[in-house]
Design a protein around this nucleic acid. Structure first.
Length: 873
DNA sequence: CAACGACGCTCGAAA
DNA sequence: AGCGTCGTTG
């Protein structure tokens, strides 16, 4: 989102409008109100312009339906019209319709398009219609039915950072070492378990080996700590909801009664928990109640309609189970399957490339992709020298596409690096391309976030407006995390992880040692950390538990905290009713604003100024949220009996909803074409989107497919990588560029790469391949050491690994160990770039480093690449 | 008690 | 290249 680009050129409206997202609008059927049948439109209007299969998907409303929607087959169009058809033509009350997506962006778009079809915002035909994400729905349900779920309604939602610090504490508390049990892998094991609906005891029952038995202990401790902090993690949102729906018949029946029609988008990416949630809400038989306005002759069976494409399943690693969609027909016997194969998005060459690629997968439901459109540019594939060359080449390509001209003079005037542009037009003159494209119609995809950095630099250099799709980027900033940390403790006094983060930020004399002591007391007493802080008084100093200074600091902190909450009532005179005011007060009175202001004054660096801006922006985002928030969406969850909602102070409810919206932001939510900039994002975030012009970078073995898939013994991961590549290709409507770099610097060391096998799988007749890796003598001079064997790029057969020598230069501790002997201190060496130098010292260890003084360069330099050193004396 | 530098390890995608 | 941890110093 726009927070990413600090440069003035790209600064637009700084209000994150997506933040308000799509409040879940859930309203009860008010008794006595009639279904809004009277504003019906013609059936023909809703099915106009649709193909026969699309029409079938719109009007087949009863019973289970599986829509196999190939990429670009008009899926969203079908779903939105189907909802409109249900409400407008069949007269189904809108509150009986539930549509689930994966991102807020998708939900917002769907809602907007349905709103358009159903007479605008506020229309009676929209009332209570629920279009939202799985995670939002679950968060709402868990608050509404907190007791049934075994929670308290003011729970916090922990993000991965919070999870990491919590699990680390637990590992230590279990007397394990974080070396033997890296928090990262423990968390991934726990996440996997939760996605399969295995709680700590179920997990323990399955844990046979030493390691997983211990992980089971950590898992149990982690769950206990979460509940103690009155918190849930992302996976809990799904798991606890699924569990509640399974175990609590009253809740299940209530929701089943309410949502008679369930739709799930991107069904291929659902995991077990999501499968259970969707099917339990949809139910399986005829409803007992006759009070709802169902059309006559409705067959029995769940009205569940799932839409997806097995070829686009890319979330296996986070528990998505592709068999949910592959086996849907078995789960729901008698279901109707509607394949949508015709592509309305991409040109024929792009589609042919995608189709040829995906045919290499074995585990799939084959369907023919076809388009009726003719013509279109060939897909371009370019081999670059290194990642910097690649980035410049991509910006050059984008500018050329933007300006819609092959005349060199045209871009020379704006680009500033004519060399780049020359390289593009030379050799591969592009014929018959399709006019000009605004920046917002273009996107760059990459496999890993690490690749975005070089691209950013190139975009700034080329002066092309860009936006990075990282929804959470803003909330990942240190200063914002601190402010949000305070707010979370305000909303949930038991939130120990957040309290620990902020209790001494800014430094207020509560040291780590003090916090440890308090924490120990809290654990002993079984109460939250803040509660222990409350109990601190001078007697603690007398008893030698804390020093007197610490006692004062803690007491002062508790006082400050109580000012914000009105001592827990939120009704105290010092607390205004405005969320933005609260956020503003917390930022000021906590001292974090002053802290950053001082830093900014001292360092005078731009990033410190930015921090202050970000804090100000957080306040304005709260104000924006406040303006757009619809309290009835929360209150109306109190189905069917009203009342009780008033017990929660409005400000607290508002704060909770705000924090929830922050927690559930998705990367893809940050995609905002109205910004008029090129969008940079991961291939995963690109799912579900489309762009007239697309560039995919880093088409190399080890990146796409990712190295983990390359080393994996099973085909499953490799097939998922191929689908990921397929997803990227099929986002492109008219122009597609794929690039690979011959050399790429990863983890600080440059390495020779091998072009992706996927490039070799593409059909040659639709590709325009060019090797430009030798175009720039200046850029690549340091690499010219006779290692450049020719790369056969997309030769229609698998790539031969480019020589066994390629990786040896910088990998392996074995060679590193010998370095000290090879280059003793005092010896003279030659480096291809820095010239003659003297070795000052060599550090042993796996990461061998030599400090070398180069006379010619006149500087001391750390050299990691000993392979490029030659001893001369 | 805070701040800083040296050192060593890791490194995939995400709600 | 980035991050967290450790030890030293102010």
């Amino acid at each position: 989102m726009q927070h990413e680009s600090s440069s003035d050129a790209f600064a637009g409206d700084l209000t994150p409008s997506w933040l308000s997202g799509t409040p879940v609008r859930v309203e009860p059927p008010e008794s006595g109100e009639e279904s809004p049948r009277h504003e019906r439109v013609d059936v023909d209007a809703l099915t106009k312009g649709l193909t026969e299969p699309q029409k079938a998907a719109v009007v087949t409303t009863e019973g289970p339906v599986l829509v196999l929607a190939a990429a670009g087959s008009g899926k969203t169009r079908v779903i939105t019209r189907r909802i409109a058809y249900l409400v407008n033509v069949l007269g189904i009350p809108p509150w009986q319709v539930l549509a689930l997506t994966f991102t807020n962006k998708a939900a917002g778009e769907m809602r907007e398009r349905v709103t358009h079809l159903l007479g605008g915002e506020g229309s009676r035909q929209m009332r209570g219609l629920t279009v939202t994400t799985f995670h939002s729905l679950c968060a709402r349900l868990l608050r509404r039915y907190a007791i049934a779920a075994g929670l308290k309604e003011d729970f916090s939602i922990y993000d991965s950072g919070d999870q990491a610090s919590l699990v680390k504490k637990v590992i230590e508390a279990c007397q394990f070492s974080t070396a033997n049990f890296p928090p990262r892998s423990v968390l991934s094991a726990i996440s996997n378990a939760k996605n399969q609906l295995l709680g700590p005891s179920e997990y323990a029952a399955r844990a046979m080996d030493f390691s997983s038995r211990n992980i089971a202990k950590i898992y149990a401790g982690y769950e206990k700590a979460l509940r103690g902090a009155n918190a849930v993690d992302f996976d809990d949102l799904l798991m606890l909801t699924a569990k509640m729906l399974k175990e609590k018949a009253e809740v299940r029946d209530e929701l089943r009664e309410r949502w008679q029609y369930v739709m799930v988008d991107e069904y291929q990416d659902t995991n077990k928990a999501q499968f259970v949630i969707a099917s339990l809400i949809a139910g399986e038989g005829a409803r007992a109640s006759g009070s709802t306005a169902a059309p006559e002759g409705r067959p029995t069976g769940a009205n569940i309609c799932v839409v997806g494409d097995p070829d686009q399943a890319i979330y296996g690693w986070r528990g998505a189970d592709i068999s949910n969609i592959l086996d849907f027909e078995q789960h729901y016997p008698g279901c109707k399957t509607i394949p949508l194969g015709e592509n309305f998005r991409s040109t024929a060459p792009i589609l042919a490339v995608a189709d040829t690629l995906i045919r290499n997968n074995k585990r799939r439901k084959h369907k023919d992709l076809f388009t009726k459109k003719a013509g279109g540019d060939a897909v371009e594939a370019i081999l670059c020298r290194d990642e910097r060359h690649e980035a410049r080449l991509v910006t050059g390509w984008l500018r050329k596409v933007h300006e819609g001209s092959t005349e060199e003079t045209k871009y020379r005037s704006t680009a500033g690096n004519a060399e780049d542009l020359k390289s593009i037009s030379s050799g591969t003159s592009v014929l018959g391309h399709s006019g000009t494209f605004p920046w917002k119609d273009m996107a760059v995809f990459y496999r890993t976030n690490a690749l975005s950095r070089v691209l950013e630099e190139a975009f700034r250099e080329a002066n092309i407006p860009y936006t990075i799709a990282r929804g959470t980027a803003f909330y990942d900033r240190e200063e914002v995390k601190n402010a949000v940390g305070y707010l979370r403790v305000v909303a949930n006094a038991a939130d120990d992880v957040s309290l620990e983060r902020v209790i001494n930020t800014p430094a207020r004399g509560i040291s780590d040692a003090t916090v440890d002591k308090l924490q120990l007391e809290a654990t002993r007493a079984g109460v939250p950390l803040l509660e222990i802080c409350r109990r601190v008084d001078p007697s603690w100093a007398a008893a030698d538990m804390l020093n007197a200074r610490a006692v004062g600091s803690v007491q002062k902190f508790v006082q400050t905290y109580d000012m914000w909450t009105g001592a827990g009532t939120f009704l105290g005179a010092t607390v205004s009713g405005s969320l933005a005011d609260l956020v503003d007060r917390v930022i000021k009175e906590s001292g974090i604003e002053d802290m950053y202001r001082k830093q900014a004054a001292q360092s005078k660096s731009e990033t410190d100024e930015e921090r202050l801006d970000n804090l100000a922006e957080l306040v304005s985002s709260a104000r924006q949220f406040e303006l757009e928030y619809d309290p009835s969406s929360d209150a109306a969850m109190d189905v069917p009996t009203r009342g009780g909602a008033a017990a929660t102070p409005p400000l607290l409810a508002l704060l909770r909803a705000y924090l929830e919206s922050i927690a559930l932001v998705a990367d893809a939510d940050a995609v905002d074409p109205s910004q008029g900039s090129v969008t940079l994002m991961t291939l995963h975030a690109a799912k579900g989107l489309e762009f007239p012009a697309v560039a995919m970078v880093g088409m190399e073995e080890g990146l796409l497919p990712h190295s983990r898939a390359v080393t994996s013994p099973s085909d499953a991961e490799m097939e998922e990588e191929r689908r990921l590549c397929f997803v990227g290709i099929t986002r492109a409507m008219q122009r597609l560029l794929m690039t690979a770099a011959k050399y790429r610097t990863m983890r600080g060391t440059p390495e020779r790469t091998i072009p992706s096998r996927f490039l070799a799988e593409l059909p040659q007749q639709h590709l325009r391949v060019s090797d430009q890796s030798d175009t720039f003598a200046d850029l690549g001079a340091e690499w010219d050491e006779g290692r450049g064997e020719d790369v056969e790029f997309g030769a229609g057969r698998p790539m031969r690994p480019a020589g066994a020598s390629s990786g040896s230069a910088s990998s392996g501790g074995r060679a590193a160990a010998g370095m000290a002997g090879q280059f003793p201190a005092g010896c003279t060496v030659r480096h291809p770039q820095f010239g003659i130098g003297t070795v000052k010292s060599v550090s042993p260890g796996a990461q061998a480093r030599a400090v070398i003084e180069f006379r010619e360069a006149g500087t001391k330099t750390l050299v990691l690449e000993y392979a490029r050193l030659t001893r001369v004396g």
